[in-house]
Write a protein that binds this DNA or RNA. Structure first.
Lengths: 106, 106
DNA sequence: GCATTATTTGGTTATTTCGCCATGTATGCA
DNA sequence: TGCATACATGGCGAAATAACCAAATAATGC
């Protein structure tokens, strides 16, 4: 693995890391249905407003969402909806954990 | 978000987190070409043998790879190859960071 | 059995991440 | 102009993660 590759995998890992948090993953799925303002997330999640804001900031920095201030509210939406395709695969991974290929979970 | 959901997103995030590391991502891609033993990874990566082993352990615990001891060597292979589909999307995300939709990167 | 090779595990330390609190900034309204 | 609402940011302690070293385990050949 050369220097070029290191940069590449580092950049890719950063994107994955941005999604690799329960709250952020949930947010991304919520945004699949359309844009949301920060307050809508705050209502649904039991966390501090600043925490929500920081999670969204992580997603934004990773290039996964983009935001748009309208009046007092900031609306977020998916910039790259393909990230949602991760979920179907993740579910496969989880399923495969419960049925070991050779038999029971020895 | 109820308790059930929390568990669900936590489990999903764990899978993503397992891949969200440059070395582990690279390993997963290597395994796309077929199984590898730990020593083959160790040759290619500039890291301690134990570090490599631990990374593989993370991927295994997440259900992404499975291992198989043959003789002195342990061979790893992808258990759920769909994780590789992540990469094409990640590349889209990275590309979209360099061309803002409305014009230059204002 | 004993040395050797391949891999895993435990311990330690440095770095990163998380979530809260307090504070700062921008917008709208009175 | 002053105040409330909607977010963002900086700081801090706690917890998780990462990488190394040393030691343990397992299989092989002598």
């Amino acid at each position: 693995m050369n220097e070029q590759d290191k940069l590449k995998y580092h950049a890719q890992a950063k994107i994955l890391k941005a999604l690799a948090h329960p709250t952020r993953l949930w947010m991304a799925e919520q945004l699949a249905d359309g844009e949301r303002c920060v307050c809508e997330f705050a209502d649904a999640v039991d966390a501090d407003f600043s925490t929500i804001s920081k999670h969204l900031s992580v997603l934004k920095q990773a290039g996964i969402v983009e935001d748009d201030k309208r009046g007092k509210q900031v609306y977020y939406r998916l910039k790259t909806p393909c990230v949602l395709r991760f979920v179907s695969c993740i579910e496969d991974v989880i399923e495969s954990q419960f049925k070991a290929p050779g038999g029971l979970d020895k």
